[in-house]
């Protein structure tokens, strides 16, 4: 009787171990995930949009004061930007004339693939998008938002889906520069949707709000993609470099459509 009881316990445990060994050592887990993502993606897309709407509703209630302050700041920034745009339009015209004169031709733009977010991992800084190897996606491609803000790069690729490793992931690090001052540093992901700009020369004077863009140095991402702005600068006497905490250029709650750069 006791032996039968033991067999009834041991057999399922052994079967379970074999199942998970097979799933981990072969690509069967990828196929399993792809299958589940395929049948769940319509529901996930609806839930993602619903979550986004609910989050917007509650953030409106809880952050009313902050929103008002933000609105005032944006209004002032908008005025500044309108002035800048008119100046840039003049420059654009001048640039166009110069290009034509030098016969440089049109600037090559990125080759992009549009995709949608359907899932975010509960523990990792990564997203799931609805484009996979069938659409020509390969690991390492850069992912940006519609505002050309850098989001991350393609991690694992399934048949119809891919994972995007956000720049805030602890595994992410790449070269970037402060546009206003041409100061180079390294953007490192710190997890939990946070990132910092490190290895900044100590003697350089850096102020909050300055814009960070990708540099061509690392070759991981195309140059001049917006990364974010400087939030806080950390400078100590012990360290030979200064570090800056970043405000990212994207809001994960607002993300729906993403672009994958297939060629640059």
């Amino acid at each position: 009787m006791k032996t039968i009881h033991k067999i009834r316990v041991i057999v399922p445990v052994v079967l379970l171990i074999i199942l998970f060994l097979v799933l981990n050592l072969t690509n069967f887990s990828d196929k399993t995930k792809n299958f589940f993502y395929s049948i769940s993606s319509p529901i996930q897309k609806t839930l993602w949009q619903a979550g986004d709407n609910v989050s917007d509703f509650f953030s409106g209630i809880f952050n009313a004061q902050e929103l008002k302050k933000e609105k005032d700041e944006i209004f002032l920034q908008n005025l500044e930007l309108i002035a800048q745009i008119s100046a840039l339009k003049e420059l654009e015209k001048e640039n166009k004339d110069l290009r034509e004169a030098l016969s440089l031709g049109l600037e090559k733009d990125f080759q992009l693939v549009l995709s949608q977010v359907i899932n975010k991992d509960i523990s990792q800084d990564s997203l799931l998008i609805n484009k996979g190897s069938e659409d020509g996606i390969v690991p390492g491609l850069s992912v940006i938002t519609s505002q050309k803000t850098l989001l991350g790069q393609i991690g694992k690729v399934y048949k119809d889906f891919s994972e995007v490793v956000l720049i805030t992931s602890k595994e992410s690090s790449f070269d970037a520069k402060i546009t206003e001052k041409e100061i180079y540093g390294v953007v490192k992901g710190e997890g939990n949707l946070k990132a910092s700009l490190s290895l900044l020369p100590k003697e350089e004077d850096i102020s909050e709000g300055e814009t960070i863009v990708t540099s061509a140095l690392g070759g991981i991402f195309p140059p001049k993609l917006l990364v974010g702005r400087i939030k806080e600068i950390k400078k100590t006497d012990i360290e030979s470099f200064q570090t800056a905490e970043l405000t990212l250029g994207f809001d994960l709650g607002e993300l729906e459509n993403l672009f994958i750069i297939t060629n640059f």
Partner: peptide, 19 residues
């Protein structure tokens, strides 16, 4: 199934962790 893969060295990174 619905947790995305983790990247880099991590001992808890295998299919079946939550199971």
């Amino acid at each position: 199934v619905f947790s995305l893969s983790c990247f880099g060295p991590n001992y808890f990174c295998f299919f079946g962790f939550y199971t």
